[in-house]
Nucleic acid binder design. Sequence first.
DNA 1: TCTGGGGTCCTAGGACCC
DNA 2: TCTGGGGTCCTAGGACCC
Length: 404
Amino acid sequence: MDLDAFFASVEQLDHPEWRGKPVIVGGSPKHRGVVSTASYEARTFGVHSAMPSWQAQRLCPQAIWTRGNHARYREMSNKVMQVLKDETPLVEQVSIDEAFFDVSPGRFSKENPIDICRRIQRRVASLGVTCSIGIGVNKTVAKIASDRQKPRGLTIVLPGTEASFLAPLPVRVMSGIGSASEERLSQLGIHTLGQLAQQDPERMRAVFGVGGPRMVLRAQGAEQSRVKAYVEPDEVKSVSNERTFAHDLTTRKELEAAIGHVSALTGTRLRKKGLKGHQVTLKLKFDISHTHTAQRQLARPTDDEHVFGAVARELLDGLWREGTGVRLVGVGVSGFDDARPQQLDLFGESDGPAEESPQRDLRALSVATDDIRQRFGAGALTYGRDLRLHDARPQDGVDGVDGH
DNA sequence: TCTGGGGTCCTAGGACCC
DNA sequence: TCTGGGGTCCTAGGACCC
């Protein structure tokens, strides 16, 4: 099941005056934003997800723009998922607007799966949004089927007809094949899933690595897949925040301010999740196709931006030369899987009942700022250092405020 | 005037260990 | 006379997903 133009549909549900009109959820055209979701009315103008906002605005000047409200979408998503769980015992949510569920005939119910799916569609519609569903013998087939007749589609691929259903479709419709793989396949003369299905799996392994043979199997409609009831929520591998600026940053002061800003966002989220990591990554994007990252291991895991932010600032020297314009700055923390032995730390800071150490004070400061921002808003408290960003920063973190 | 932000997984080379 | 083999960890980059 895939919700139709989900974010835009929720906006139209919440703003009746926007119904029947082109609505675009995404970043502002002035701030290098992209389209997150376009309503079907906007799509008739050629607007689609991931399109640069300035381009979308040119195609559809009358569109209503909003930055979106993720908390609200999460709330609606939960209601939809509840319907699925009510109708079938085995539901695998894969994203905010997508889920697999197992309606294999006779497995959990004697009812015809088509009837179950139609009822799900009716119940979801009564919540105020619509969905499309694909039925097939495995996840690849079902997902591709769900995309064939949007919106409000129900596409059934009967067992035994997978290969003929998939064969004429372009390779790009299969998840896992993006623009780069599409291009490489095209160079090999492979354009459709039918052609991919006939390839020698070992040849595909040589070109695409370990995933190659599986790609062939999936294109044949022969993949074995299982719907997993529940994906561990707590196996997060990394937490990061990044920001694209309306104007390139060019000075060290601006960059250090930006690093401070995104580090604080990451620190807050780490503490909220109760995670400490021992690996810090700094990411800089110089232009649309040139991104560089630098990583460093820490002596011990941390969730304090004063610690990992300082390391990120040190990493700057390896990536950036004074005068180079930077469009995006990101700081991430990973390495939470700490079964590893404690590293020998040559510089003291024992883990014992830490007396007054500067590190301890700074950590306490971070916790205190979390509290103030929680109560009075993200902008309530800012380091003087970070104010240098003022004119370059897009209005971030203001979910729910209409963009224009 | 000119493409986001949050993630995951894979690859490949080098350092290092036994 | 002229450099093994297996393994782990670290780093950087890239593809991909929604």
